[in-house]
Write a protein that binds this DNA or RNA. Structure first.
Lengths: 202, 202
DNA sequence: ACAGGCTGACTGAACGTTCGGTAACCATCA
DNA sequence: TGATGGTTACCGAACGTTCAGTCAGCCTGT
């Protein structure tokens, strides 16, 4: 960032830029995202953006941090008492059964950004971190379920990785194909996978 | 395509363009793919490309058809006698346990192209078709397994969709994160999922 | 002679980035 | 009080580059 502000979080101007970037992303998609378009959404000149960030890449990396923050906040609500519910909660957050417009848009933005991770190492590290975070969260819930005796004694890591891969795949399909029915079906199938794999048969 | 050639398949000139496009994609990635770069790989001028195709989009849509063809050929080798082996074969083709450089590159190209499906309807339709094709292939193997009595009487569509989502998610993670170990683990976990879900416990 | 396949030079638009300037707001000190 | 100087946040215009796409003309084989 250009200004080394002492703040822990985002200051006002930068938050506004992040939101403008988000709007521009929604309106034009990652491929057609330009400094001009972000500036238009911000209702400032292009140069204003260069006052706050050194380059387009700099701005975009900052935005990715912003977006990942949001995404992580979304999934990490406080955990309840029942591991079953917690697991279902995480899945519903990541892969809503019937996503509203806002959820759909956020996911589209994430998929768009993610495609950049193929060639941009800073992006790749962020998504590596994000995926790891999701797996760890899932793992912990499963472990707690095992400790509480409501889940069978499985390998939490293995199950968590499997769940995460399935979620990612479904999200990906939703964003890049017209197979919405298949996505919904997979979402349901995932619940039944958890049921048969984790739940104790009394 | 610009030329309405009566040929069923690709003629020589077009095949060379497709291969040049593939090389350019590997060398520069989708984001930095330009007509000039394809022309460089082809060792012809830009205008030569415009002789064969009306626009960049036209060329790219043709290339996607070409790539999807290749991908489908890859997975649809003749089916053997054992549904277990066939299933494992399809999975290994789509998600090699230890992919060589060529497989890795093809997958990267596919993920790059796929990100375009978010905004380009022609692309989206192609990937919808491709995913559907994979699910159907998987479904048929499972159905055959059930008929032969080697698989339990499950819902083939549901299992096939689940497998496909998991494969897609893992492939996606491989292309966009540094979690190669997790990808390999998920691949193994997928086999064990099939084992516990499909195989008859005698 | 002529058509198919191609070239090289070009255009206009869009892009990221830089730069000179400026208005608003501060603190300092006479 | 009010002049001085510095800082922050911004603007408009321009720069160099790259891009998709066009076009007049040139080979080469028939």
């Amino acid at each position: 960032m250009a200004t080394d502000s002492p703040d822990e979080k985002w200051n006002t101007a930068e938050t506004e830029i992040m939101q403008a970037t988000y709007r521009a992303l929604l309106a034009h998609g990652y491929a057609d995202l330009s400094i001009s378009r972000i500036a238009d959404e911000l209702d400032k000149s292009k140069a204003a953006l260069y006052y706050h960030y050194d380059s387009k890449d700099d701005l975009l990396v900052a935005f990715l941090g912003f977006a990942v923050d949001r995404f992580e906040t979304t999934i990490s609500t406080e955990t309840g008492a029942d591991p079953n519910d917690d697991l279902e909660h995480v899945i519903e957050k990541l892969l809503p059964l019937r996503p509203d417009e806002e959820q759909r848009q956020l996911q589209e933005v994430m998929v768009g950004l993610r495609s950049q991770a193929m060639t941009n190492e800073a992006f790749r590290e962020q998504f590596t971190r994000l995926d790891e975070q999701i797996v760890i969260t899932t793992e912990e819930i499963i472990q707690r379920g095992i400790d509480d005796g409501v889940f069978r004694d499985v390998d939490p890591t293995r199950i968590a990785e499997h769940i995460q891969a399935t979620i990612n795949g479904t999200m990906y399909a939703r964003a890049t194909t017209n197979r919405e029915n298949a996505a919904a079906a997979t979402r349901v199938s995932l619940s039944s996978y958890i049921d048969s794999e984790l739940r104790r048969n009394a």
